[in-house]
Design a protein around this nucleic acid. Structure first.
Lengths: 205, 205, 205, 205
DNA sequence: AATGAATGAGCATTCATTCAT
DNA sequence: TATGAATGAATGCTCATTCAT
């Protein structure tokens, strides 16, 4: 991202840039060392600013973590919404959600690590994370499944709530494994197989 | 790098008791406050021993966490093995694994929290956890699926590695949701529906 | 585990010693550098203990300051009481109070500095100080004056409250001047002249 | 803290105005929070200027405090001089000093707080304060007393130095008590009683 | 083995001061 | 002159670990 110091007079000229810079630095640092083991000065160092400057943009180290996942969830959900609104069939929608999920996290390994690992590191974070947008995400999946049941493409004998957890859990585990794996492989392609199992099961008919 | 003094502890009968006491205390404390926010003195206090005594049984705070999951995984896997060896059909085996997974974690909420939450809090822990037994667990699932493919009960066009992750991920998410849920409900009963989806999919035929 | 606040220190044999040592060190350090400019590590260094040890005996730097003046006021007032109870005449009592005041503070220059200077450095401290015992001290003086009025040794047209402030203020200023003075002189002998003025005034009759 | 900036460089020596504004702001802020707990940005905020602007008028935070009491002492002493030069009798002079002292400080509670409390918070400040004008003030009192002795209105057996401290201490304590008191009362009227005691003593003849 | 007092490295945060604009 | 974003030194407090008893 370039340091355009001419353009946006609307907000803080450099303010947004620096905030952005800190967040990116924090993602990198948190990904490598974990939230608790990361020092604020590590983040400042990575962002090439003075330690104190961090506090001009964030109230605390914890707020940085919050900002990371709030921003991510927001863009995640809004992107999801716009992509899905033109899709009619619930199964297609779900397939697209799965693809987006893996594409998005597969595109930024550090961000994925923060999501998969650091966010799970404390019940407190998880609850806050849940409140911040994750619950909504799960609910979108649930509604899509319920929609599919109405449309007649999904079985009606299954509980959409449980199905949504299974769906999310399957994707989530793909991401986690990808992160931990030493072999570099593409995450997104796995979406197809996940959907196949989720839709049709592993049983031979 | 590690761990366990399992061997030499067995020599001292009372040693095992106190070690056990510390581990139980640690599970309780970690579950409530998270690994990083738990103080060694909290654990000692909970175990009703002096702070220093902890270090007669564990080299460090981290080793306590390691011991918790090593012990858990060991018993988990050995219990699984003995339960499964008399089951012939791969789908029955897999069903039993799912039941055991949820029964076991559903039986001890604190332990479940440590597994679901604290263990995920750092890549380091996750890698070590993976090395310590989780990979083996996932592999048992994978082999069971491959076995089912041979037996002809599972589709042969699916990759057992990916299927095993889906299977584990689905169960794992059930547990995580159960932990975070404020409503107290039984975890184990969910196993049936998970298996149903995993086996037959959500699509209407 | 932890210790002990003010109360049960008496139980620990060395506990009291170390607490004492820290307080003495703190008086010295506060006297030289002032409360705000004194670092906890200065105090620890002066007391020849590790920084952390300070916190085994005091909850915070501020609590150290409180302890200093609480302890001082307590002993000051209790000593005063026992000295005064055998004195009948109010003017003799007052004279003895004046002497004690100057003797006591004149005996420990560092302690006097903390009392005269550091304690006055913030309204907050002053109010707390006032609550802690100073108000009582002033009240003892006031009552003694009122007593003298009853006994007929003091004029009855004067307000004892105001007189007590004048009395205290006069002594207090003697101490403050003594502290600031570069010439080393004895403080206590000044008591006589203060009493003479307070009793008989400066006016020539 | 944004400011309307007008290019009024031409009009006034606005420098003095702004300096004045900062000093008034500082008195208010120091009075409420104490010198050490007051932030330069608090002062700037109170004065409605930018933080950096403070440094165009003062070299440091400490210099602000110095300026406050230098200015105060100057005006105090010069006012005193002009008021006193027409008074012949030393006892009348002293009476007027006492009145002025209490009137002046009683008229501006915030300023009084800074004088009574913040100035006493460090030996360093006190010494500087003393050098800056307080010593001179005390000396004026001393000389007035000596003058009174010559005039025959004051006893000659008393040491004027000690008497001046008593005189000042009594007044000073009145002010300090007034500041700490929660009840709002007028400070100046107390002057009469202080003088009465100082002149004639509390003893009944 | 058990204790718990003592240690001291480590760290988030604050804030006086500077300086480019 | 004025600004306020940026700096980075400074410090109170915590807590895992040690060790004398």
């Amino acid at each position: 991202m370039t340091i355009s110091k001419t353009a946006d007079v609307s907000t803080h000229p450099s303010g947004t840039d620096k905030r952005e810079k800190i967040l990116r630095a924090a993602v990198k640092v948190f990904a490598r060392k974990g939230y608790f083991s990361s020092k604020v000065s590590d983040i400042a160092g990575q962002a090439k600013i003075a330690d104190g400057t961090v506090y001009l943009y964030f109230k605390s180290k914890e707020e940085i973590l919050h900002s990371i996942f709030n921003r991510m969830m927001e863009s995640f959900i809004s992107q999801g919404r716009s992509e899905l609104e033109n899709i009619e069939k619930a199964d297609d929608k779900l397939r697209r959600i799965g693809e987006l999920h893996l594409e998005r996290l597969g595109a930024d390994r550090d961000l994925a690590i923060v999501f998969q690992v650091q966010l799970r590191g404390s019940i407190k974070f998880m609850r806050e994370f849940s409140a911040a947008g994750f619950a909504e995400y799960l609910d979108i999946i649930r509604r899509t499944i319920a929609e599919g049941q109405k449309q007649g493409v999904f079985r009606r004998d299954l509980n959409p709530v449980i199905c949504s957890k299974i769906f999310f859990g399957a994707l989530d585990e793909m991401v986690t494994n990808w992160i931990l794996s030493k072999k570099k492989f593409e995450l997104a392609p796995a979406a197809g197989e996940v959907m196949e199992v989720f839709f049709n099961g592993v049983a031979r008919k």
